[in-house]
Nucleic acid binder design. Structure first.
Lengths: 261, 261
DNA sequence: CACGACATTTCCACTCAGTGGAATTAAGGG
DNA sequence: CCCTTAATTCCACTGAGTGGAAATGTCGTG
């Protein structure tokens, strides 16, 4: 009768699979080890159900059992899937080398990200360091969408309806200062529409500018550049914005050459 | 009656979840875009089932739909989970910095890996380059267990029964030259038992040595060091082996200081 | 060392979520 | 425009999955 659809609230989809994925998602930086009890609580699932699902995730290689303290950790398989994602990403493949070159040339950080729910995830974040030997490339790190230049550029790049849906979610999660924050987000979005980029300084002494990359048939991405240890200044912001616009144009060229697969 | 257990052949576990994970696993370097049909074929599942599961994976954010050519790609979520795995790995956290230092000091590649089924997965692979600016850090890359020093060191570190189970799988997959290969693998394993490390040169002009890291309650890991553009020579191998043994000892010290969480 | 306080796993009857073959719809290609 | 091929939806069936309750296991404590 129920044709694999429409269980409590959901429109469609496979419940067990959804729940299993939700369990994997419960692990994040700072939450590296979880027992069945805590998983049950965080995911809002019955304990017996969690017990069975974690068993499956272990036998599928996605979780490692920490036997001696009845808990689980993400297993190495998840990074091999992550690696497959990165090597298969047409955008990263196309502009990754360009990003590295630009980071070295301009002596600043360059990043490429897209959305994961209400967070932005770096596909690649190249941290420029004066000592080039320490140059650091990170993938998978998340930053909040509403507070970062990346996130706001992304918001500027997506469809109206999707954008409003996300803005509602931000309102729900940060109770305080929401009015001012949302206004600031909208200001950033218009900045992208007017100047092509937006500038945000969500961490002290870091100035970041970002711009969306919109390609047919692919998720919206955002490119950013940032500098540490600087004071926020409009002059610097517009200088970086100009660099970014030029760089984004170059990236789009490269992408245009590859797109029609 | 059937209490969420023992479906066709399997001992236990949630079937839909297992299948969903298997679908994610079907994507790997070189196989970046898959349609439902191809997934069905590769995973041995009915098409209608795949259609439903991929829909769920999309709505859970694990897959992106490539609408215009009815296909799917891994979504950015998978790298954020991968990132969570890496930041939560106690072993990588403990010895990662030591590995970077060692790579710079010895001017060679240093890697840390563990098993994903019959492959070894790098948690971190630090590729030394004479031009330090180009230094490359990769995570998630897979290399075959039976052909690499990493894999053989791993095999030497795990329990007898598990090892034999894996050796059988190698026999099954590479039809040719299996006899000689397995003998070579066993030789490497005894090398680990005798000298603490094994040396393998599975790629031309690359010499690698590896050693297992066995810790209570954690999966077995393997550490390796390698050098490109060299000729295989026993003298060089034993020099690198000595470096590696000293380095592994240092790592175990660091780990001992952290273990008793 | 036995006992109490939790936490996790197993048991179990119930039932609906999930299944897969068949029918339908959609998408190119000639 | 029709024909081929692939993906999705339909549908009756049923056993996989569920969650509360009981059992088992684990650890700290008096």
């Amino acid at each position: 009768m129920a044709q694999a659809r429409r269980y409590a609230g959901g429109v469609d989809g496979n419940r067990s699979l959804e729940r299993g994925i939700e369990i994997l998602r419960a692990f994040r930086p700072g939450v590296d080890t979880l027992g069945n009890g805590e998983i049950a609580e965080r995911c809002g699932l019955p304990r017996s159900t969690v017990s069975r699902l974690t068993r499956t995730l272990v036998s599928s290689g996605m979780l490692d059992e920490v036997r001696h303290q009845r808990a689980y950790r993400l297993a190495a398989s998840v990074i091999s899937i992550g690696h497959a994602m990165r090597t298969g990403s047409p955008v990263l493949n196309a502009i990754g080398p360009t990003m590295r070159a630009e980071s070295a040339k301009r002596r600043l950080n360059v990043g490429l990200a897209t959305a994961d729910r209400t967070m932005m995830v770096y596909l690649e974040s190249i941290r420029y360091s004066p000592r080039a030997a320490l140059r650091n490339v990170v993938a998978g790190q998340q930053v909040p969408m509403e507070l970062t230049s990346l996130g706001r550029a992304y918001l500027a790049g997506i469809a109206e309806t999707e954008r409003e849906r996300l803005l509602k979610q931000f309102r729900r999660r940060s109770a305080a200062a929401t009015k001012a924050l949302l206004a600031d987000v909208r200001r950033s979005i218009s900045s992208v529409e007017r100047e092509g980029y937006c500038a945000v300084s969500w961490q002290p002494a870091v100035l970041a500018v970002a711009t969306p990359i919109v390609l047919d048939g692919l998720p919206v991405y955002a490119l950013n550049m940032s500098l540490q240890n600087v004071d926020r200044s409009d002059a610097l912001a517009s200088e970086m914005g100009a660099y970014l616009n030029a760089f984004a144009a170059k990236c789009k060229e490269v992408l245009a050459g590859r797109e029609p697969e």
